[in-house]
Design a protein around this nucleic acid. Structure first.
Lengths: 72, 72
DNA sequence: ACAAATTGTAAAATATAGTTTACACTAATA
DNA sequence: TATTAGTGTAAACTATATTTTACAATTTGT
């Protein structure tokens, strides 16, 4: 009994939030302690971050996860 | 220039939310289309789910991610 | 136009999320 | 007490997040 829900895709507003805070990908990476390449990949939707990464970002931007990531 | 933030741990309230909705781990697994063992592991804090998993759970429980997961 | 800063990308390696199968353990309940 | 539903766990496996190094492309400032 396995209902397959359609392939769920993830969207994000990282670039907008970075702009709002005037911060570079590298700075963000340093702040939340991860690589710049990972930030870049997440921002470009290349992969789905862990919820820990998402929470750290939300913390940094002083907002809710839902304002950063959403299901398309 | 790499500031190491202490090792961040993840907490969750899945069990409470399951109780509130009176649903089993297996049912939840089926609803959000993942294995019962993964639900169990996440609930017991054995690993950190992806944000997609977290969003699917929040959707199912009709609540915000922050009500399900938090940084300890 | 030039230089510097920022962003995009790629390959190889490592870490960890998530699946599958299978079985033990712990309720709940007839 | 015996049966059943629900949960805990383990090993082997697959998928993918994340790092590191390195370099190309693009944007920004002078």
């Amino acid at each position: 009994m396995k209902l397959k829900g359609g392939n769920v895709e993830l969207g994000n507003r990282l670039k907008e939030w970075r702009a709002k805070k005037d911060i570079t990908q590298e700075e963000l990476a340093i702040r939340i302690n991860m690589s710049r390449q990972s930030i870049n990949a997440i921002e470009r939707g290349r992969f789905v971050p862990s919820i820990l990464t998402a929470l750290k970002m939300a913390n940094f931007f002083e907002t809710k996860i839902e304002n950063l990531f959403y299901i398309k």
